[in-house]
Design a binder for these strands. Sequence first.
DNA 1: GTCTATAACACGATAGAC
DNA 2: GTCTATCGTGTTATAGAC
Lengths: 231, 231
Amino acid sequence: MTVLRRSTHRAPSRQLEAAGSITRARILAAATEVFVRRGIEAGTIREITKAAGVNVAAVNYHFGSREALLRATLAEVAGPMNAARLQALDQEARAHAPHAPPLPAIVDALVRPLIETPRWQDGTRPLIRLIQQLRALPHQMANQLMAEQFDAVAHRFIAALHAALPHLSRAEIVWRYEFARGAVVHVLVDCDPESGRLAALSGGACRTGDQDELLCQATRFVAAGFSAPGR
Amino acid sequence: MTVLRRSTHRAPSRQLEAAGSITRARILAAATEVFVRRGIEAGTIREITKAAGVNVAAVNYHFGSREALLRATLAEVAGPMNAARLQALDQEARAHAPHAPPLPAIVDALVRPLIETPRWQDGTRPLIRLIQQLRALPHQMANQLMAEQFDAVAHRFIAALHAALPHLSRAEIVWRYEFARGAVVHVLVDCDPESGRLAALSGGACRTGDQDELLCQATRFVAAGFSAPGR
DNA sequence: GTCTATAACACGATAGAC
DNA sequence: GTCTATCGTGTTATAGAC
């Protein structure tokens, strides 16, 4: 709840975002844990500060509000993954210059960093859980947070895909880009120990903990989808 | 929030689930509206009863608890869609007997009812929004609600797909079944007016309100993914 | 069956001492 | 920078009148 609650927060009067504080770092780590395990809406400032071993008032002192803390949490988790994607795409572009990178290289640059995003000991990928939750929340704020983190990368990849598949219209590229993202994120959620859906449906036949298997299955499905005939 | 809140509900002592009540029906309709627009966690009993024009206490009288109301809401929205899927699959099975239905027929039976699920005037598909939210909630209850509604259908379709694609292992069928579901649900969320992400990414080039276009794009991507070479 | 009123509790944010 | 205490507001669920 209460992401939506009419905030009574007026104007953050102290120095916010001073990234040096040890307390700040502890809050950020605890917030990731709580938002993932308990849910973005259900996780409370009180839980977070308790898990971080700091005072209840510290969140508002260091971040200004619960929403600003959520934004910082997402940036910390999604930033490195998107940077890895862009770096991989750039590398492929250099390797194939002056030609455009071929489809399999682009798909790998898009999918691999998502699958190889850090996992906790139990196999949970915190980034995946945050993405899934933010996409489901019917708040404009959630859409905005996602756009802040992912739009730049999306446009880069759509351009690269358009160059690799020039026979498809831009609209068809975008359709398939989102089909591809959905397929991979959905299955990563299913692979999460919290869900276990893929293991349940397959009677344990899908090795959901095997990253190589997952990457192999995902790239094959996605590349085939992109390679479907156009209109 | 408070789906998780430790409930103090003891034992529903009056007749629950007596489906005849007019009040009950009004609550159910209002609950769908509120859970979709405001979110499953954020939507409160007070909002629902206010929208339904009934008393606050009526939810606990007719359903027993907030969670039971959510279960009834999902069943009402997801039930007809899954029935349509099974009916379509049965029809294809009869049409192709004694052979197994071919891949395109199965994909159509799987995807079309999801896309043609009822929409509100603004284009929102309530079922899609409920699915997306339930998949994101980190509660065991949410997983259970999804399994109750979708597991039977999943097993039917996986069996049909296995018959149509006998060169693939059962594990590979399940991987691709979930890739397919994820691709379609993800894009349907993007087509929702609340999100608008597909329209934004494509600069308006994707006609997200055109059901025929959506079905065409989805079945092409999904069928190609299933047709990818096996291991 | 439907209402009002309330119990019992949780929340985010902040004032103000240290 | 960190604490305690508190304000104002929200929640589910239920007791008891009608």
